[in-house]
Write a protein that binds this DNA or RNA. Structure first.
Length: 514
RNA sequence: GCUCCGAUAGUGUAGACCGGUCAAUCAUUCCGGCCUUUCGAGCCGGCGACCCGGGUUCAAAUCCCGGUCGGAGCACCA
């Protein structure tokens, strides 16, 4: 006890730096953990001698934020461990894939600032899949089935085996050949029809699909199902780590690989997540688009990557969001406020500032001097300025002026005393002195551009479509805003961060967030 | 119904594997205050949570059992 007290006194006499350096000698882990926490990184991966991951899109639609996170997780770990990331198209259903969406997936990934080392198409591996299929047929692990779909379904439900299961290997080999030439049988896994996990009850491995494939055209008519193709590919491509959402179950794929004596990747699952009030599934979105309730796949209320981009959400925000949520296994209902906060933090240092006046009202200022002001493009960082020459006529936000009792300040310009309110406002010049308590309001002069701002709100409220989810605010912006290019993200002062969506006579901007 | 996951403040997350340092982390929202010629950023402060019930233990957010609730799968989709 005595000893301890003496030591404590000794240590307390050291200054902070000395204490830290001492601690580093005996307990360096203390500092490592601290750093990880501060940066907010994803947890480390197990078994990382070398890492190969995959980005596995199906080219059947536009990527949304869920794809984005999945892409990022897999990309992140490959880069973190100096590994390889493969863009692999899971395109084994000719009925659903479309050429266009291969490109859209790539565009989405590129927009996310994610790159990949190799590109691979499952649809190019059919001979390989056939080889493995034949192995499973010869080993008695798979059999051809003639039964109609409905029968299979009820048999699986009731754990009944069908007659097809009893055929011998040579019969199956023969039938497989027939199948390859187009006869509509299916190849099923000889699993366990009594398995409590119904997925293991002889699932389909191959089926005949006559629809042409966007890449392979009509070269093949027998296509593997997802679990078979994926099981093989993950092993053959040397994938070491699979990060995927929990709608996929691992048991069947592992079983198939075991049957073929193949290596397993490490599988890490996380939960699918939702953004509050924004459905992500195509099934829910299609009717909204068809009915014109949303503008299209890039409607700013949506969470497709094109919509996020259009709204002014930057790719780094998706990265940050992935780190924020981690590989969570609970079912999150992400609030837009989290996405907005992350985005704001990222764009605030670069977004140039401009004056925008929503719902403007004209004000004539008696005795106003004509001034040419230089207004800074950013309050904290020097990005230069824009120049505005003023006269006696201004436009200010209607709602602001309504709250003014007497005097206010045209921000960065001068003070005005209100002398009359009506259809227009009258005022008089009230000095240039900056007064601390005076309301500062943004303004534009006669020399302005018209701006329409699209403001997104929750698309669904309590499960119901929200008819007021897209607000349109008309207003005026200073002339300089008229020269901004499409895609520029700016902050309209005292209004919010917006992305220029369309230029021309009238500008359209999308409201990202405050 | 069966199988697999999960449940920490309004929201998201850390802690759980290896029980005590947890009257529980960080972020966000909300509310105050400071700062600022933006209602942005920054800074300070505040409210706010371990699903329920048993068990093990000197000690449970953490381990075990049982509920409840939520999600996913049970396709010739991926």
């Amino acid at each position: 006890m005595q000893l301890i007290q003496e030591e404590v006194i000794k240590i307390n006499q050291l200054n902070k730096e000395e204490q830290e350096s001492e601690l580093k000698k005996i307990y360096p882990e203390y500092f490592q953990e601290k750093e990880v926490k501060e940066k907010k990184e994803l947890p480390p991966l197990p078994d990382v001698d070398h890492v190969v991951t995959r980005l596995p899109p199906e080219p059947n639609g536009l990527p949304h934020i869920g794809h984005g996170l999945s892409f990022y997780f897999n990309y992140y770990y490959a880069r973190r461990y100096n590994g390889t990331v493969i863009l692999r198209f899971d395109d084994t259903n000719p009925e659903k894939e479309e050429l266009l969406y291969y490109e859209k997936m790539k565009e989405g990934i590129t927009w996310l600032k994610i790159d990949w080392d190799k590109e691979h198409y499952e649809s190019g591996d059919l001979p390989l899949f056939y080889d493995y299929a034949e192995k499973m047929i010869t080993s008695g692990d798979a059999y051809i089935c003639f039964c109609p779909q409905s029968r299979i379904k009820t048999d699986r439900y009731h754990m009944r085996e069908c007659g097809c299961r009893k055929r011998n290997v040579s019969e199956n080999v023969q039938l497989w050949k027939e199948m390859l030439s187009g006869t509509k049988y299916i190849l099923r896994l000889k699993g366990d029809m009594k398995a409590p996990d119904s997925q293991m009850r002889d699932p389909t491995l191959f089926r005949v699909v006559t629809a042409p494939h966007p890449i392979q055209k009509e070269k093949y008519c027998v296509w593997p199902t997802y679990d078979f193709a994926c099981a093989i590919e993950d092993s053959v491509l040397g994938i070491t780590h699979v990060l995927r959402s929990n709608e996929f179950h691992t048991r069947l794929q592992n079983y198939i690989r075991d049957a073929l004596g193949m290596r397993h990747p490490v599988i890490i699952q996380y939960s699918r997540f939702n953004v509050r009030g924004s459905p992500a599934s195509k099934r829910q979105l299609r009717p909204l688009i068809a009915q014109g309730l949303v503008e299209g796949w890039d409607d700013i209320r949506l969470t497709t990557l094109v919509a996020l981009k259009r709204r002014g959400i930057v790719p780094e925000t998706i990265h940050a969001l992935a780190k924020e949520m981690g590989l969570s296994t609970s079912e999150p209902e992400i609030d837009w406020s989290i996405i907005e906060a992350l985005n704001r933090k990222i764009i605030d240092p670069t977004a140039r500032r401009y004056f925008f006046v929503p719902n403007p009202i004209k004000i004539t200022v008696e005795g106003a001097p004509s001034i040419t002001v230089k207004l800074k493009l950013h309050p904290d960082i020097d990005y230069g300025n824009r120049e505005i020459t003023t006269g006696g006529v201004f436009f200010v936000p209607r709602s602001d002026i309504a709250a003014i009792k007497d005097e206010f300040r045209l921000k960065d310009l001068f003070n005005v005393r209100v002398t009359g309110k009506g259809e227009e406002i009258q005022g008089e010049f009230a000095g240039k002195e900056v007064k601390k308590d005076l309301e500062k309001i943004q303004w534009v002069t006669d020399d302005h551009v018209k701006v329409r701002v699209l403001v997104p709100h929750e698309l669904f409220k309590e499960g119901e479509f929200n008819p007021d989810s897209l607000e349109v605010i008309e207003g005026l912006a200073e002339k300089a805003a008229g020269e901004l290019p499409v895609g520029e993200i700016v902050q309209f002062e005292r209004f919010g961060f917006c992305r220029i969506d369309r230029t021309g006579e009238e500008i359209t901007a999308c409201f990202a967030h405050r």
